[in-house]
Amino acid sequence: MTEAKAAIIARNLSRSFGSGEERTTAVQEASLELRAGEMSLLMGPSGSGKTTLLAMLSGLLRPDSGQVLALGCDLWRMSDEERERFRLRHCGFIFQGANLMPALNARDHLEMVLRWGTRLPWTEVKRKAADMLALLGLAHKATLLPEHLSGGEKQRVAIGRALIKQPDLFFADEPTSALDWEHGKQVVELLRDTAHHGATVVLVTHDYRILPYADRIYRLEDGRLSSVDAMAQMALGAS
């Protein structure tokens, strides 16, 4: 494991939705530090604010108050364009669904990110996409459309699409919840390997089977965050 240092520092993040009677506070005064080379889990009951927190950490949802320092940059002090460029350069995402374009095959999805997001020459784009497909174990499925891929394969394409630009920060919101454990495990292992190659991985999940793979675990309860030691959490989950 690489020398741990804080890649993301969040201070007193709060966010609420709605107004008046219907106002709900999704995340309240959350502070945390995420380190490069680690995979951190964000766990908690449904509605506890996990997705909201992840979105604020990753530059998708503006907090009501608080600060996010990502790779030394104050994420929410940037202009929209700057934040977009930051996401392009540094952030990878996967979501519950793979959200692949039905008309494009696995290879297209990977190539598209490099073609549209970088200035790499076409030959380089092709090579990188082929390498990534091989890494994902999808070399022989490169030209299949999403409708011909299994759920796990689709999710792996989605991961590949996020990984191919070699992001420093990787955000995943319940990427395994639509998969059986056999496929879910593959996805988690991929994410852990990504972390151990130096990226900062944040994974929102309900699934306690992921615990053994985590380096750090955070728990959210009613929008309040608490850090838990991985071993202790595992014991908790087992009990």
């Binding site: 990753s58 460029r85 930051f86 392009l88 952030c91 995402f93 959200n99 692949l100 374009m101």
Partner: peptide
């Protein structure tokens, strides 16, 4: 009909003009 697909590309920082 493809809003979610395009939104992922936007999340990844791919420019809107693309």
């Amino acid at each position: 009909a493809s809003l979610r697909e395009y939104a992922v590309l936007r999340a990844l920082g791919l420019p809107r003009w693309r």
